[in-house]
Design a protein around this nucleic acid. Structure first.
Lengths: 337, 337
DNA sequence: GTGAAAGCGCTAACAT
DNA sequence: ATGTTAGCGCTTTCAC
């Protein structure tokens, strides 16, 4: 029972001061007689008093709870986890705690979790969205909850957002493949409904167009429901007569499966491979894997800063900040056509 | 400003009912006239009412906030992240949200974060501890906050805990090396002050003892301050005349460095290696890496269940649950002496 | 500089 | 079955 916790009134009685003085001391307000401060602090220690921030937020102007929500694709995937850590560090510097949740691409879960966080009155939310319509947030923002989107922008909802140069990053990587003589380059990505997936596909198409290589739809596939679908597509792809000489995998799980399939067919030294997203140990594989990666630290810090500014009342127009990707060339991307 | 959010009183007025009826409907209590339910629900929708759980917890018996805290080593490391996901899933099933924080092995941070979470009145905490004295939690538990420890038990604080068979897991792996003829087996682990590090070292020593292999302190090192120290020790170790024929690395970062160093010396096919902790892509390296791993899902679920039971008022004696590790033998562990 | 009183949004206890 | 009132622990407002 939290009921047995002492309150400010208990501390006031114990220290022979008033409730308000205790409040001032606990909140570190200036202008309190040092003697009283000592008395209060002694009583706090003696009674093991713990400030109740949630009660305070009820009456506090603006009702701030110094808690934010962070909605990720899945807290256990490396991209989400790294983003989480960055946001946590930014929040810690300001005495803000972070509540997290995984959406798994489910738009219903997005709404549920946002409702759950709002019921706990978070001051704002950083969201890697899973839904394709964020109109429903208009009322929440009007009521005082701030939102910043990350990785993908909001849809039907004008807001701050931080994204990466998905298209340009892929374009650079695919162009490098073309310059090595590749003309048949496969592209495996997520469903086009996902913003990042579409952007990455656009980058691939642009690179082909610039080099006047016609699109071969047989070499493209967007959207897989699970790993075995990826595997099946790749096995089919590689068994064709006119199989590709290079593969671009636009997401880390797809890259992982591609590595395994290429190995199992003993083609990992014959067919070039470049993937999108960080992959632990990618540099230790044989061949080492070329990757296009996002600057997660920059993305997370910018998103956190944007959110904190909004919570602090900044009213300027909504910003969309774009963070450059990095192309790390390794052996798998240098295999010639 | 959260101030503009409508309250139950606004909903009551809009629906022509009373505050208490609104409360009943919002909380899904039975025994309310369906007509009134409809009226209230209509008003809730119209006004975009959002229940304020934090206000409710103030008055609610037991003061539950339906929020728990999860303190991890570092939310972005794979072990922590996987644990986080498991706990999140267990919590979600009960409508509980999770606040998280990274301790980085810092005991001051542990206290700070616990204080921050208690200030927000979490119902309980699941802790991978970083401090070596948890006496200070006695008062918190007395005041109604529940604690479950995971990965390492609490010190000077009697509580529920979930750990893995660290010692037995290592013993099994090292014994397998011995049975392949290895007698000079190096052991690299974390500082002995860390529970898991000590346990893993114990397992190593037990395996040697059972086979009557004398301990060679030159082959052991416990505690590194950073990756370059690990690297330096390994480089020295491998350049000795009587270098080890096998290495056991008792933690994932150490295993990673060992993989890199063995490769750089071209010894990865000559010296056996077994590591502790999961390593993504370990099966795709050449040689594939043998690992002793923890059942993170089981550990997380058990910890969550223990915590929820305590929150629900279970008063039985504190339990220490031990979850078996798994030894996955791959090529790196099968290299002979 | 300090304190008393009101009230934040809700639930509990008690009417009706 | 529904409503009224008090009060959770705190911050605000305002008086001293």
């Amino acid at each position: 029972m939290n009921r047995n916790r002492p309150t400010m009134l208990d501390v006031a009685k114990e220290s022979g001061t008033s409730l308000k003085t205790v409040s001032r001391v606990v909140n570190g307000e200036s202008g309190v007689n040092p003697e009283l401060v000592t008395k209060v602090e002694r009583a706090v220690k003696k009674l093991h008093y713990r400030h109740n921030l949630t009660a305070g937020s009820l009456r506090r102007l603006g009702g701030r709870t110094k808690t934010i929500g962070l909605l990720l694709e899945n807290v256990s995937n490396p991209f989400s986890a790294a983003l989480h850590r960055t946001v946590e560090d930014c929040a810690r510097a300001r005495g803000i705690e972070v509540m997290t949740g995984s959406l798994d691409g489910d738009s219903a879960r997005e709404r549920e979790l946002i409702n759950g966080f709002i019921a706990r009155r978070v001051d704002g939310l950083i969201v890697v969205p899973s839904s394709d319509d964020h109109k429903y947030l208009v009322n929440e923002r009007r009521a005082g909850t701030q939102f910043v989107f990350i990785d993908r922008p909001a849809l039907n909802f004008n807001s701050d957002a931080v994204t990466a140069t998905n298209s340009e990053g892929v374009e650079e990587a695919v162009t490098s493949l073309i310059s090595l003589g590749h003309k048949r380059i496969a592209f495996l990505g997520d469903f086009e409904g996902i913003f990042t997936a579409k952007e990455r596909h656009n980058g691939y198409r642009k690179a082909l167009r610039s080099s006047k290589i016609p699109v071969d739809k047989e070499l493209e596939k967007l959207g897989f429901h699970n790993e075995s679908e990826i595997e099946a597509f790749l096995i089919d792809l590689l068994s064709r007569q006119n199989r590709p000489t290079a593969i671009f995998t636009a997401q880390n799980v797809i890259t992982l499966v591609a590595i395994r399939v290429l190995r199992s067919k003993n083609l990992h030294h014959k067919i070039a491979l470049i993937g999108f997203d960080e992959l632990p140990l990618a540099d230790l594989l044989d061949p080492a894997i070329s990757l296009v990666t996002q600057d997660i630290h920059a993305m997370g810090s910018i998103a956190a800063q944007l959110l904190f500014d909004r919570i602090d009342g900044v009213k300027s127009g909504y910003e969309e900040r774009v963070v450059p990707t990095t192309f790390t060339q390794r052996a798998s991307g240098l295999i010639k056509a």
